[in-house]
């Protein structure tokens, strides 16, 4: 599915964060948004999900405007969201978090089994309160919950934040595997190596707009864009 953000303006109350943000993600592509803190990466994902009001511009999914829908209708269009900090339902069990994901688009036990086969460790912890999981397990659950929607577009907000290398590798492999199945992915990432290993293109965000979009094939960890827009 093609996701297009056109001249988006959005923010929190009087504070405008996005100032004409424009990008498009092609079907089956992994687009990574990179930029400094406060550049507007997370707000861009929240604007897609209808969690911040879009005051101008449009979010279009395969020709259908999404930003005019109520927030709870957005995931039903096939957009899965893994928010920054996971935002699990901490007082619910692993199984209940997964159930919430399955309910979104009326998915069944078959999807549940497939998701649990991607993250078998979650199967061992189905009755455990999700707040008691380790950081890595919580991230697995956040991704599993989003995958229960069988999303056509997946939004991942810093999925590797605070994780150990083995967990980062697992999440990277998952994104690559999803890409192979045709899932379109928007990834917010601060780690240059992680971005380069999974993304097809990187959109550098600064001041609430995309300054430059570059195919990862033309980038290395020492490319000047990372110093200019990310500060690494």
């Amino acid at each position: 599915m093609m996701l297009t953000l056109q001249s988006i303006e959005a923010g929190y109350g009087a504070v405008q964060v996005l100032r004409g943000l424009t990008f498009e993600v092609r079907p089956g592509e992994v687009l990574c948004l990179m930029g400094r803190n406060g550049a507007g990466k997370t707000t861009a994902l929240r604007a897609i999900m209808g969690q911040v009001p879009v005051t101008a511009g449009s979010v279009v999914l395969d020709g259908t405007p999404v930003n005019t829908l109520p927030a709870h209708e957005v995931p039903k269009q096939g957009i899965g969201y893994v928010p920054q900090g996971r935002r699990l339902f901490g007082e619910l069990t692993v199984a209940e978090n997964i159930e919430i994901g399955l309910m979104t688009r009326g998915r069944d036990a078959r999807v549940r089994e497939r998701v649990l086969s991607i993250f078998p460790r979650l199967r061992e912890r189905l009755d455990q309160m999700s707040r008691t999981l380790s950081g890595g397990e919580q991230q697995m659950l956040a991704i599993a919950r989003a995958l229960c929607l069988e999303p056509k577009v997946l939004l991942l907000d810093e999925p590797t934040e605070g994780l150990q290398p083995s967990m980062i590798a697992l999440i990277r492999d998952t994104v690559v595997a999803l890409k192979a199945t045709g899932v379109t992915t928007v990834l917010v990432e601060q780690r240059v190596d992680a971005a380069l290993s999974v993304a097809d293109r990187i959109a550098f965000v600064t001041g609430g707009r995309v300054a430059e979009t570059v195919p990862t094939a033309g980038l290395t960890t020492t490319s000047p864009q990372f110093a200019t827009y990310v500060g690494v």
Partner: peptide, 24 residues
């Protein structure tokens, strides 16, 4: 029940509940 699960999820985090199709 599912209704109870939806209510508890909404109680915990209504923004995330909306991101999973719950009409808060």
């Amino acid at each position: 029940t599912r209704i109870g699960l939806v209510m508890r999820a909404t109680q915990i985090d209504r923004a995330t509940a909306r991101a999973f199709g719950i009409n808060v």
